[in-house]
Design a protein around this nucleic acid. Structure first.
Lengths: 117, 117
DNA sequence: GCCCCCACTGACCTCAAGGTAAGTACGCAC
DNA sequence: GTGCGTACTTACCTTGAGGTCAGTGGGGGC
């Protein structure tokens, strides 16, 4: 099955289902979010995503790579250097996530307001 | 903590984070998706979301209700009747999910194409 | 000499989300 | 009188995602 190895559950009920499958993973949206602003080295990413362990960060990056969302470029230098960036697909995904982020922001504001009084 | 009982992890890193927290749950997007097209009874919903068990469906509906996404209306009739529908907030969420669904649809098409030829 | 930083990998463990199966109370159909 | 449909609840079990911790191999700082 040549092109299907990156697939999650399948078959998908709808597009939303397929999208969520890619997003699924405790830190993935945060990773994508971080990579939108800049291409990052592994260590930078770890600092930008507070709470991830190295193992899980690697894991999720690999999955995102397999799904064609992020691009990994390693430089074979003295201190190893790896740079992660969004692919075009990843960029489109990020754009698609925009409205959701905006909705969440409004919700955050509403919650905070409710707490404040 | 008057208004904070529906909260998930918190604090959120960004809006996306807050939105994903609401969406998080194996069947929630599918539930929201189903409710967008029509207000539904419990049994209908179960049929519309293939694979959910009654227990988990109830669970996730309660969480969505607590987060202000769905509205639950029970009629105290001879055979019990309960209707679920999206709140205004839920409707907005669904709208925000639109682009993501479209992205996923494109991805599904691309994957299928890759498999076919 | 010692330790941190780079970008990982692997063995092991935990915990909670979700699945399984059964029960509830009532009415209608056959 | 057996069984289905309504909308759940409860006790129990499984599974796997994610967390913890240690190791790798070399370079540079002090």
């Amino acid at each position: 099955m040549g092109a299907g190895e990156a697939l999650g559950k399948q078959p998908y009920v709808c597009g939303l289902d397929a999208a969520v499958d890619v997003i699924d993973g405790k830190w993935k949206v945060l990773i994508i979010w971080a990579l939108n602003h800049q291409r990052c080295r592994f260590g930078e990413l770890r600092r930008l995503v507070p709470g991830v362990t190295e193992k899980v960060l690697t894991q999720q990056l690999r999955e995102l790579e397999a799904d064609g969302i992020v691009h990994r470029e390693s430089y074979d230098t003295k201190p190893p250097k790896v740079e992660y960036s969004l692919t075009e697909l990843g960029d489109e995904l990020n754009t698609a996530l925009g409205p959701l982020g905006a909705w969440g922001k409004r919700r955050m504001a509403a919650l905070e307001e409710a707490v404040q009084g």
